[in-house]
Amino acid sequence: MPKGQTPSQTVGPFFAYGLTPRQYGYPFASIAGAEVAAPDADGEHVRIEGRVLDGAGEPVPDAMIEIWQADASGRYAHPADPRGSNASFRGFGRVGTGTDAQCRYWFTTVKPGAVDGAQAPHINVIVFMRGLLSHVYTRIYFEDEAEANARDPVLATVPAERRDTLLARRIALPGGTTYRFDIHMQGPMETVFFDV
């Protein structure tokens, strides 16, 4: 018997003590945080960071970003992945933009491998915030995977002039590699959001 989906509502401004308590200093454990891969996980260790910008170009200080990704060999830590789980890799992170002076989110992780023969390496992103009534999905692709990106069937469905909004910029720093990925909710650079 089909049942109507429970409608979405905004996460609101005060999610921190429920969803990201450790990051914001509340006395409550967190189920996930900025560490997506443990320091001993296989693969190239990278930092992913960026800001969420509203239609006026202002950084959003009360957004929450979740990411879900495959490990360095392209496996997801989930029973639906037929290749079996990688116990040392979780692949999920959750961070609010309210504890950084520049309103950045950040994750420490490993660069994901390709999940199948066709798709380029990518990280799945969900965006929540006050003023967003239904969460939106996007993907982080990597600018230094040009060849794989050119063959990616999802990127191929995105109008060519908007594909850049899905590319993280590689910044090599003395401490390691950072990928920068800003999320533009609106405006000429509006990020591509997917209907999943």
Binding site: G55, G131, L132, Q186, E190, F193
Partner: peptide, 8 residues
């Protein structure tokens, strides 16, 4: 929602 909801 006016400045935060995607428009495309």
């Amino acid at each position: 929602t006016v400045a935060r909801g995607p428009t495309r």
